[in-house]
């Protein structure tokens, strides 16, 4: 079982496609067009961009540290609700 779990964790890591914690980054998810607050706790967040599926669907990912996480898809701005879920 340990092997299976480590494979799943590896996959979770793969889904991060360059998403990383960079303490004090100026390009945090908080400021990114594709980042929105977590539905319950606004100190966490959700990423809705950068990970669109081949079909154009929106496959969100939870951002545990919304203020210090970033990735290469960072875009400043705000997303229009029509491009959201």
């Amino acid at each position: 079982m340990a092997e299976a779990v480590s494979k799943v964790k590896e996959l979770a890591e793969k889904r991060k496609v360059g998403v990383r914690v960079e303490s004090g980054t100026t390009k945090a998810c908080l400021k990114c067009r594709w980042g929105i607050e977590d539905p319950t706790d606004p100190s966490k967040g959700q990423c809705i961009g950068g990970h669109r599926t081949g079909m154009g669907g929106i496959w969100k990912r939870m951002i545990h540290d919304y203020y210090n996480t970033t990735c290469d898809h960072f875009e400043e701005g705000e997303v229009d609700f029509r491009d959201h879920v």
């Binding site: 079982m1 299976a4 799943v8 996959l11 979770a12 890591e13 496959w59 969100k60 990912r61 939870m62």
Partner: peptide, 23 residues
């Protein structure tokens, strides 16, 4: 299908360990 682990959204253990479905 992942022994309670959420690989696709939160990267956390979301439920109890219920075993490797391959078994």
């Amino acid at each position: 299908l992942n022994d309670g682990y959420d690989w696709s959204y939160s990267d956390t253990q979301l439920g109890p360990n219920t075993g490797d479905p391959r078994t």
